[in-house]
């Protein structure tokens, strides 16, 4: 089980958190103007990366804040955490 460094609370056990899937999938501003294909892309299609993934977590049993995590899904090593709205780290 991981230790996740919540950007608001610090290092906590994984069991305090819930994962929220791939990050930076922005909800379309004008959904009605999308084709069914484009809408499906937003709704269902995922990169599902093996390797370094940007993803969302929420500190459910803590501050209840959503934030982003950079994690290598091949070995579960967390590389970085950053708040919602912050720029993802490039390295």
């Amino acid at each position: 089980m991981f230790v996740i460094n919540c950007p608001y609370c610090g290092e906590r056990e994984q069991s305090e958190f819930k994962a929220g899937g791939e990050a930076h999938i922005i909800r379309p501003k004008q959904p009605t103007e999308l084709s069914d294909d484009q809408w499906a892309e937003y709704l269902f299609m995922r990169k599902n990366i093996k390797g370094v993934q940007f993803e969302r977590w929420i500190h459910t049993h803590g501050c209840r804040k959503w934030f982003n995590v950079v994690r290598d899904t091949s070995n579960d090593v967390i590389k970085a955490v950053y708040k919602m709205g912050e720029k993802p780290p490039t390295k």
Binding site: M1, Q14, S15, K18, A19, T73, S74
Partner: peptide
């Protein structure tokens, strides 16, 4: 299942 994506073939003890 756990709720996060992982290819590590390991899940959490919880």
């Amino acid at each position: 299942t756990d709720d996060y994506v992982s290819y590590s073939q390991k899940g959490s003890h919880d």
